[in-house]
Computed example of a mutant assay.
Amino acid sequence: MRITTVGIVGAGTMGSGIATNLAQAGFMVRLADARREAAEKALAGARTFYARAVEKGRMGPAAAEAATARLAVVDGLADLAPADLVIEAVFEDFDLKVRLFEQLSSIVRADALVATNTSCLRVTDLARHMSRPERFLGLHYFSPAAVNPIVEVVKGEATSDATIETALAFCRASGKEPLRCKDSFGFAINRFFCPYTNEAARALDAGLGTTGEIDAVAKEVLGAAAGPFTVMNLIKPRINLHAIRNLAPLGPFYAPARTMIEAGEADRPFEITPVAGGIEPARKAEIADCLLRGCFLPVLQALDEGVAEPAAFDHGAKEALKFGIGPCALMDRLGRAEVERIVRPALSAYGIAEPDALARVGSLAG
């Protein structure tokens, strides 16, 4: 099956970014939102994106005009019936998504694919509310979706191999790098990104450092382009908190920290405090341990579960999250004894069994 027309439901940050990317890549895009003004705003945002690309020499004027012409706002879900693929990009709420998929089941063509852009929910659980679950999958884009190269391609229990192959070809045709993942809470990248941000909040709660200091340590030890609090402000603490809460079935280690709950429920950004002078070595080491624990333990557990290969975790960390080094490569560099020292406090505090993958540290990344 060749995909030429894509319907997108949800014109927020992610939906608008996906639409912008796909129209630029040559796909016909139909954008639906319960609030038509949101869809119209997304269309205007795409025009601005293309105009800036022309100014910077990344697109020609004719290409920008053609991309804009491929974007259209529709009045409702029924107008998505001709689409070869429909991508859901509404708020990360299970019940909201379920209601949408039940509606789409009676609208989309029998041979069309339907994908969820969920960041943490299991595809299999959502697929139970589709009339043709074999044609349902996860396509998890990363912000900003218009330019971020990574898309996690997630196969649910009922998803057919043909659906996955079609989706992989579609991602490549749109200029994205597909990262295949097993269906698991958080998939590959959010499986460790969410705990990493949560451990940053726990370090703040424990008084180990200020937001600015914790961000600075993250940039140093992970080579991150931006620290966790800066990134959370970009994606919104409310959204990040919701994603963390969706990891609850994985156990108490994944429960949100106090300040994460406070900022998320108040829907307010974290105040990033300037770093005055240096950070004491001992305190800096404790902060680093917290951040690395948030990355390492979830990745080791996910490797045990077969969620993805080590190379996928590392590639996603570098390309989607802009880390200077991936978690598996960093664990190999540090060695088993040091990684065990870092994760041991969490194993003890939360009664977690030692991951089998810990024994492979030193050769995880090949």
Results as ranks from 00 to 15, higher is better:
241 L>V: 11
241 L>S: 03
241 L>M: 07
242 H>V: 13
243 A>S: 07
243 A>G: 05
243 A>I: 13
244 I>V: 15
244 I>E: 09
244 I>P: 00
245 R>C: 12
246 N>P: 04
246 N>T: 11
246 N>K: 13
246 N>W: 03
246 N>F: 06
247 L>K: 00
247 L>G: 04
247 L>W: 01
250 L>I: 08
250 L>F: 07
252 P>Q: 05
252 P>W: 05
253 F>N: 07
253 F>H: 12
253 F>V: 13
254 Y>A: 06
255 A>N: 05
256 P>D: 09
256 P>Q: 12
257 A>Q: 04
257 A>I: 06
257 A>E: 06
258 R>A: 15
259 T>N: 14
259 T>G: 06
260 M>G: 02
261 I>H: 05
261 I>V: 15
261 I>L: 14
262 E>P: 00
263 A>N: 06
264 G>H: 03
264 G>W: 02
265 E>T: 10
265 E>V: 07
266 A>Q: 10
268 R>E: 11
268 R>K: 15
268 R>S: 08
268 R>G: 03
269 P>Q: 09
269 P>N: 12
270 F>E: 00
270 F>M: 01
270 F>A: 00
271 E>L: 11
272 I>H: 01
273 T>E: 11
273 T>R: 11
273 T>Y: 00
274 P>C: 10
275 V>W: 03
275 V>D: 04
276 A>I: 14
276 A>Y: 05
277 G>S: 10
278 G>K: 12
278 G>T: 14
278 G>L: 15
279 I>D: 00
280 E>Q: 14
280 E>Y: 09
281 P>W: 01
282 A>R: 14
282 A>V: 15
283 R>M: 10
283 R>A: 13
284 K>N: 10
284 K>L: 10
285 A>Q: 10
285 A>G: 06
286 E>Q: 15
286 E>A: 15
286 E>F: 06
286 E>I: 02
287 I>E: 05
287 I>G: 06
288 A>R: 02
288 A>N: 02
292 L>C: 06
292 L>M: 13
292 L>V: 10
292 L>R: 05
293 R>C: 11
294 G>P: 04
294 G>Q: 04
294 G>F: 02
295 C>V: 14
296 F>A: 07
296 F>H: 04
296 F>Q: 03
297 L>H: 04
298 P>T: 06
298 P>S: 05
298 P>R: 03
298 P>D: 07
